[in-house]
Write a protein that binds this DNA or RNA. Structure first.
Lengths: 217, 217
DNA sequence: CTGGTTACTGACCGATCGGTCGGTCAGTCC
DNA sequence: GGACTGACCGACCGATCGGTCAGTAACCAG
């Protein structure tokens, strides 16, 4: 039905106003995120983008190349969305809550990209694509560590604790919640499955105040 | 070279003394864990188990059935290895450290099984295989929550904090370390990439004592 | 008008996929 | 010995995989 006389007429429509190449990248990202690299087929990606399989190979020479392009833009998106998270002022505990909540919000509102990035990070082999993602991640990680250790040297945070461990613990909590959010809904005694922001705040409560009984205020 | 005259002679050897079906399950688990469901091929699994592809289909009717069998045994193994982690006595902070270190130890010494279980949990669709794994997980999760909230009611832990959030934060830290242990090695300023047990202990330091400055003892 | 470039296509390729089939061989029970 | 069973195999199947290629329609430069 959308099929028109000539090839170019179809493109003239620029389905949904989006040029084919962009549409292709977006569809590929979605399908790679859903099915993984091996599970995604070029035919399905082409169909989703309403484009012929040959055209996919015209724009990106191979499946691998398409995947790399997808990962690259995903890593950039991921970096961009996280860019703003740490740029805040205010009381320290509020800033920690802010960071955790915003971080949670960002990965949730970019779940496709986050899925791709995490999937890539979990690979054991050190391929080109892993390097792309790793650099983005380590940059963001270092900024969080810097933030914490600076707060420590200003005597605002417990100096006895390793800042990198604290940073990783914060990130772990959010990432774990994100990765298993579907399963968490079926956990008994867990009230936060549908409330990511309160969960992020509760995590800060735990990590900031500590489990030790003396801190119950 | 291991090829012998008749089919049965080959089996009489029971390569490495392990019956074919078990060997098959083990090889399938390894390959599914490495390559994912779509990425694993029946031919490769058969070759790894030193068995013909037809024989794989003789024992398990389909790729999906083989995968389900693998997931089922993996979930059982996972449950079994975690069974002992919480059965300890002693001072509370020691028990927390104990739990975290043993939990870390168990997932690391069963990385194949853990990879499989985590991979399965991350799927968004709720398939039969997800249910298998989910039940195991929620049982173990509930026991950790019970432990924490019991300690709280005995005034041994900060009662103001949600026990399920605390439990998830502990688990998240270990799982995240496990999933990204390869990448963590390349993080600057992170000394724990090759030292999982000290990391687990450091996480307890953070979560037990809290980031708040007043707790620096 | 012409020649080159770019976007795009359907027809096609060899390889590999999951899965089937017919049959061999050894052990078991009667 | 004969009927039956279950483990096992090679050969083969249709479908799908990633990828190629010749060609066409539109655009732009001269």
């Amino acid at each position: 039905m959308a099929k028109v006389a000539t090839a170019h007429e179809t493109r003239a429509f620029e389905t949904d106003g989006i040029p084919a190449r962009e549409r292709l990248l977006a569809c590929a990202a979605s399908i790679f995120a859903k099915r993984g690299y091996a599970g995604a087929s070029m035919a399905e990606i082409a169909a989703e983008a309403d484009i012929s399989k040959s055209t996919v190979f015209h724009h990106f020479g191979s499946k691998r190349a398409l995947y790399l392009a997808v990962i690259e833009t995903a890593a950039q998106d991921f970096a961009a969305t996280l860019e703003t998270v740490l740029e805040k002022t205010g009381p320290l505990d509020e800033r920690l809550v802010d960071f955790q909540c915003q971080h949670m919000g960002h990965i949730l509102s970019n779940e496709l990209v986050t899925d791709l990035v995490l999937r890539e990070l979990q690979k054991s082999q050190s391929t080109e694509s892993v390097h792309l993602v790793r650099d983005v991640l380590s940059a963001n990680f270092m900024r969080l560590v810097d933030f914490i250790s600076e707060a420590q040297s200003q005597k605002l945070l417990n100096e006895a604790l390793d800042p990198s461990v604290a940073a990783l613990t914060l990130i772990s909590a959010n990432v774990f919640f994100f990765q298993h959010r579907k399963v968490l809904k079926h956990l008994p005694n867990f009230d936060y499955a549908d409330r990511p922001q309160p969960y992020a705040k509760a995590v800060i409560d735990v990590i900031f105040h500590g489990l030790d009984r003396d801190r119950s205020e």
